[in-house]
Amino acid sequence: MYSPDLFLLVGFFIPLSIRMRMAVSKANIISDLQKEILLLQGFKPGSAGGTEGGLGLIKHAFPNATFPKGAVHEFISTTNESASASLGFIAGIASSLMKGGAPSVWISSKKSAFPPGLKTFGLEPHNIIFIQSRKPKEILWILEEALKTDCLSAVIADIGEISFLESRRLQLAVEQSKVTGLLLRRNPKNFSTACVTRWSIKPLPAEKKLIPGIGFPKWDVALLKVRNGKPGKWQMQWHDERFEFIERAITTYEQQQRKIV
């Protein structure tokens, strides 16, 4: 039997270099354990050549440095303009998810999306199935059914309010099918949902000194919540069919740890 005292005693006599090595191996153990925990929570380490949702530059904000596919992502918008910005960002992510050729579904309450505009973000609009319904209940039903359909690459939904229970159902659906759900939520009131990430995308004005014209689509990207990752804020633009940083991440802050009672 080794007592803690004995450990201390032994540690005292161990040369510094060996102690450093032990620290390194400890860090390895911890990271391995973290990975194991993530695996138990349903996050698989990214396979080589994974798409990362086209967000290669901010992938370190995500668990395992991989954009969580097979999860529900929320984009909060309060105005038509920010909804458009979010849709652009969503379209950019969806275009990298659709690289495999699998179709995706676009669910909305009215015919607002303009298919030729999607081409700008690298999407093939004819591979998208647009579904409309005016009734929120029907939209939720279509959304859940779509998320259960595992041959889709992504499900994009333009919806309003969603309750925690409903978001749980959506999360359960994607856990089975591994479809990525990208929800644009307009003017939401309820923020306690079971999504994996929550974003807020706002359009960014062009810099004054640059050449005239409105230039590339630019956004203020705020990752408000990410499960097991690091939320952050970035300024990005869409250029040459991919996301690009305008500047380095301005702020990165730790997610508030919730006390477990």
Binding site: G101, A102, P103, P115, P125, H126, I128, I129, F130, I131, Q132, S133, E138, W141, I142, E145, A146, K148, T149, D150, C151, L152
Partner: peptide, 28 residues
């Protein structure tokens, strides 16, 4: 589609068309 579970997609479209009518589903 090249996916293996293609019939699931068709079933999905079937279900949506069945519930909302064929006009609800579009492709451009």
């Amino acid at each position: 589609t090249t996916g293996l579970n293609n019939n699931k997609l068709s079933e999905f479209i079937d279900r949506v068309c069945g519930k909302l009518g064929a006009g609800a589903v579009q492709r451009y």
